[in-house]
Simulated scan of single mutants.
Amino acid sequence: MADSELRQRKAKAEPETTKPSSKHDDAQDDDKASFYLDILRVLSFIVVASCGLSYVVTGGSSWTWGGVRLPEYARTVYWKERLSGPMYMTPEELAQHNGADTEKPLYLAINGTIYDVSVSRHIYGPGGSYQYFGGRDAARAYVTGCFAEDAVPDMRGVEEMYLPIDDPEVDAYWTTAQMEEMKKQERAAAEEKAFNALKHWVDFFAKSKKYHRVGYLKREEGWLDKMPRRQLCAPAQKGRSKRKIPKV
């Protein structure tokens, strides 16, 4: 058999090699684009999830794990407090938990009851909008709204912010007996309003799922009598109004 014929038969027996089609190239390119897009989606999810977790773990103070602090339930002191029962702290001891020392839990007290507000360190700690409440019992400030001036537990005279201002011209419309009776009723109503205003915040912390009670303030006997009686702060005083002239 001639060499040329053998070469022809061999060529027919071997499969022809062809270059991949352009459609095949496009499909590969699409697969690569999809692969990279999936990677981008996964990375985006990780970044978003990390930011969200950072916000939760740091108590809302950072989206990027700045100053990361373990949640209270993951700290030894949290369980130590739970197992040892309620604490009794003096005002001086409570003041050590005002948030300045980040290694200590942040406490505040209201009406003698102490709460752990460490999860809101950015609010009740130094520089926070409610920093005057951290490390102390500032019951008076909750009612008057004078955070800096009234960050004390002394509630004496707070009811005056709900009393009308005496005005001789207006008050002349009532007899002396009528005025005395009316003032008794006004004071009773004012005392109830002051009580309810404080109770609102007492209930707020008592029912909160975010803050938990850790103990009570321990004060020396007669502590309130040793404090000078406070004047009503300017904003609370400004909110008072005159009596309305009775309609004839």
Rank of each mutant, 00 (worst) to 15 (best):
A194F: 11
D116F: 02
K19D: 07
Y73Q: 06
R9Y: 06
E72C: 06
S54T: 02
C146W: 10
Y216W: 11
E149I: 06
P91C: 07
K247L: 09
A2K: 12
F45H: 11
S129Q: 09
H212Y: 15
A190K: 09
I114C: 00
P153W: 02
A13E: 14
D38W: 10
H200P: 00
Y162G: 04
V68C: 08
L108M: 14
C51T: 09
S241F: 03
S208T: 11
V77R: 05
Q178G: 13
A139T: 13
G125E: 06
K247W: 03
V152G: 00
C146S: 15
D150M: 01
K199N: 15
V158W: 01
L232D: 00
E191Q: 15
Q185E: 13
Y173A: 14
M89L: 15
G128R: 07
W65S: 02
S61R: 15
T113G: 00
L94Q: 00
D116G: 01
P86A: 11
E14N: 08
K218Q: 13
V47E: 00
D171V: 04
S118T: 15
K12N: 08
A148S: 14
M155Y: 03
K209L: 13
D171T: 03
K242P: 03
I110L: 10
Q8R: 14
R156W: 03
Y130H: 10
Y124K: 01
S54W: 03
A95H: 03
F35T: 13
Y162L: 01
T102E: 12
R7S: 11
R229I: 12
P126M: 07
I245G: 01
T176R: 08
